[in-house]
Design a protein around this nucleic acid. Structure first.
Length: 759
DNA sequence: CCATACGCTGGTCCT
DNA sequence: CAGCGTATGG
């Protein structure tokens, strides 16, 4: 029979088949963990195209960029070119695209900036000074989290005023209103505005609303359980008038409560779309029965959840293992040992994931991996773009696309130092706020303040002005290079002449290359539009470092693990106050959300799940092995699980060698291709550095301080190479080196064969 | 008035 | 560790 079916309809169970082929009308797909929800979504898109739907009329929204790019990839695999025209993106980037076209109705320009939390803080800080509010007693962050809280739920100051009274609210509202004014004046949106402004745009401008409603005939939503009120409002409008909306979600995997995710949106959906078809995908294809039984038992303890029976069949698999160690370090050592053992017995590194609740936990585990030279990667996203030098340069660029961007101005106007100090800035701000103009405007012809400050600030304005001219004539990459030079940033760093400053320079180099490789979705875009597009993508994605995931073990937070799966999963630091996190304990429903988080973590595992904890406490996050904190108790989530599926405390671990082998063979080809591409790219860099002098002056590398990106090293087997990346600190840091001929190797720093090349 | 050095403190999760 | 506030020196 399958021969007569088109490819995208093959190999589906009856429920999945229905979810794929009934394309019209509203549909609620309740999809348990591992029940093939991505498969269903991608194939549903394929089905739509198969039916002759215009790809441009399809909008698919996901929550994370990773999920979006993965889905896009899979759709293209299924349907080829047409897949490229489908909008598959996160809520935030879809909204950003809409606003870049139509925001002018709301008094912003198309060149608006996107503010991250750092920018937000900078603005609020200034506001508090202006309003004479004590920053110590009321930290900017507390205002911001309240503002975000309400915005996430689609409320504005007026609504909040109606609901609450009291002086606290009065101050909040004062700050909030000024905050909104400042953003409007700065032509900037925060993350919530990206969604919120679209909702307002559609509410107040019917002709715009209609345009987009007509454009999107079909709306699909992934991870629906994580939508907040605001996002739901947006979806409702977009799906009209056809009401062809399909949402896929699992109430047990709702883990974004802190961002306003509201599970009751699932109930609202059934109420608002009474015609909706409800389909349940309850068969799990991912995990072994033992893993599933433990996960089910865990999440069953939650009160407010929809009845769902997740089942699977086949060999029960190995039991879920629990391991207790004396302290964080021992725990990490054990995990690293176990991982190494598994790898020796046939598992690939990329089959293994270590999942934790908080980012800070990664460090101990990183160190343990480094000691054994286990290649690993951290899925954390932010890293590169969070670097100070990178963010500084981005702020310069933002001022070129948006001269009103005050947060960017404030961040970099004195980096490197140009004689603009706090007094001069204060005068400037005062003048700007009385004139109601952006800082940069006022800076050009400042009338207040001392002559010296005026001169310094005026010079800065001129600098930006001259760079702005360039922004229309240069490609983004050329422009970035120019900015780095003209602003004196390069000079500042090269004058420092430390390993660190050289590393920063290398990062900026990387930033240029990154800009060069950015492709604007619209091939006709000019340089300026390409720059703006690149800045958007940087702001919205945080973008992962370009390391292929082949050949490495993965470390990540639970939130980052959502939607992924691994044959072997370690869930670590399962202790009270960590998991559930201390901060969740006094929140309403906090512990239930933590339990869902644990459920998500557990259900990432396909073959083997290992849960570890220790009795001393979490690692002391930074630097120091800072000793025991509070004695820790095992997480409450480890109790009341089915005994027959568990085994305890034995450090030797038996992997399913045969199954892992089979998996490895299949995956290897894919990974090899990715790795190949990576190496190709590296080759271009390495080609420059092939010459290898006869008499090398070499000295032994003793600590990571001597090594940084760009430094040349020598290895007896591979010759001279350039350091591309350094992971971790101290004598056991892991170093990725590009050797001549395009080979990139990961070397352990302590490896005595690795030596520093002296010039 | 500005730049720099240094000590203190805080702290989920993510777009 | 980083970002902030304070103390000190140009």
């Amino acid at each position: 029979m399958s021969e007569e079916l088109p490819e995208h309809q093959q190999f589906l169970n009856p429920e999945q088949f229905k979810a794929v082929t009934q394309t019209d009308g509203a549909m609620l797909i309740l999809a348990g963990a591992g029940s093939g929800k991505t498969r269903v979504l991608t194939r549903r898109i394929a089905q739509l195209l198969y039916n002759g739907t215009d790809p441009k009329a399809i909008l698919a929204v996901t929550f994370t960029n990773k999920a979006a790019s993965e889905m896009k990839e899979r759709v293209e695999e299924l349907v080829g070119e047409a897949g490229k025209k489908v909008w598959v993106s996160t809520f935030h980037s879809s909204c950003c695209r809409i606003l870049r076209q139509d925001i002018e109705h709301l008094g912003y320009t198309q060149r608006f900036s996107i503010y991250d939390d750092d920018d937000q803080k900078r603005i609020v800080r200034g506001l508090l000074d202006e309003l004479n509010i004590d920053r110590k007693a009321h930290p900017p962050k507390s205002f911001l989290s309240q503002i975000d809280f309400h915005k996430n739920r689609g409320r504005g100051p007026d609504e909040v005023l109606k609901e609450h009274r009291g002086h606290d609210v009065q101050t909040l509202l004062r700050v909030w209103r000024r905050y909104e004014e400042s953003l409007l004046a700065a032509d900037a949106l925060d993350f919530n505005d990206l969604i919120g402004k679209v909702v307002i745009l559609f509410r107040d401008h019917p002709e715009v609303r209609q345009k987009w409603q007509e454009r999107f005939e079909y709306v699909l939503v992934d991870e629906y359980q994580d939508t907040n009120r605001l996002q739901y409002a947006l979806l409702r409008v977009l799906a009209e008038p056809q009401r062809n909306i399909a949402v896929v979600g699992d109430d047990d995997q709702s883990i974004y409560g802190f961002r306003g995710a509201d599970i009751t949106n699932i109930l609202s959906f059934e109420k608002d779309y009474t015609e909706a078809n409800v389909i349940r995908l309850e068969r799990n294809y991912r995990s072994t029965p033992n893993i599933l039984a433990v996960s089910n038992a865990l999440v069953a303890k939650n009160k407010g959840r929809m009845e769902k029976r997740l089942w699977t069949e086949g060999d029960p698999g190995s039991k879920v293992r629990m391991v207790r160690r004396a302290n964080a370090r021992d725990e990490a050592e054990w995990v690293a040992d176990a991982a190494q053992l598994m790898q020796r017995r046939g598992a690939e590194w990329e089959d293994i994931a270590v999942i934790y609740r908080t980012n800070a936990t990664s460090r101990v585990f990183e160190q343990a991996m480094q000691r054994r030279a286990i290649p690993y990667r951290i899925v954390g996203g932010r890293k590169f773009y969070a670097r100070r030098e990178v963010r500084d340069i981005l702020c310069y660029l933002r001022q070129l696309t948006n001269p009103a961007d005050d947060a960017a101005f404030l961040r970099v106007c004195n980096v490197p130092t140009r004689g603009i100090g706090s007094k001069g800035l204060a005068d400037l701000r005062k003048e700007a706020s009385t004139r109601g103009e952006p800082l940069l405007n006022v800076a050009k012809g400042m009338t207040s303040g001392s002559p010296r400050a005026r001169k310094a600030i005026g010079a800065y304005a001129e600098l930006i002005e001259s760079l702005t001219k360039w922004s229309h004539e240069l490609t983004p990459a050329e422009l970035v290079a120019r900015v780095i030079k003209e602003t004196g940033y390069q000079g500042m760093l090269s004058a420092e002449k430390t390993r660190e400053s050289e590393g920063r320079l290398e990062n900026l180099n990387q930033l240029c290359m990154d800009a060069a490789s950015f492709e604007h979705p619209d091939p006709h875009a000019n340089d300026f539009e390409t720059l703006a597009g690149w800045l958007d993508s940087v702001a919205l994605t945080g973008q992962d470092e370009q390391i292929p995931d082949g050949g490495m073990l993965t470390l990540m937070t639970v939130h980052n693990s959502k939607g992924l799966e691994y044959p072997i999963v370690f869930v670590v630091h399962m202790m009270e106050k960590q998991f559930p996190h201390a901060r969740s304990l006094d929140e309403d429903g906090g512990v239930e959300e933590e339990r869902r988080l644990a459920y998500v973590a557990f259900t990432r595992a396909k073959l083997q799940l290992i849960i570890t904890y220790n009795v001393i406490g979490p690692s002391n996050d930074y630097g120091g092995r800072g000793g025991p904190t509070d004695p820790a108790e095992p997480s409450r989530f480890l109790f009341g699980l089915p005994d027959e599926c568990l085994e305890g405390d034995l450090p030797d671990v038996e992997p399913h060698a045969a199954q892992l082998k089979a998996l490895a063979v299949r995956k290897k080809t894919i990974h090899d291709q990715k790795l190949q591409a990576f190496l190709e790219r590296q080759k271009e860099n390495a080609a420059v550095e092939v010459e290898e002098p006869d008499d090398l002056r070499l000295i032994e590398v003793e600590s990571s301080d001597q090594i940084s990106v760009g430094v040349r090293v020598h290895h007896p087997r591979f010759g001279v190479g350039t350091v591309r990346m350094v992971r971790g600190r101290g004598p056991i840091a892991q170093v990725f080196v590009a050797f001549a001929g395009g080979r990139t190797k990961s070397v352990r720093l302590g490896d005595p064969s690795l030596q520093l090349v002296m010039d």
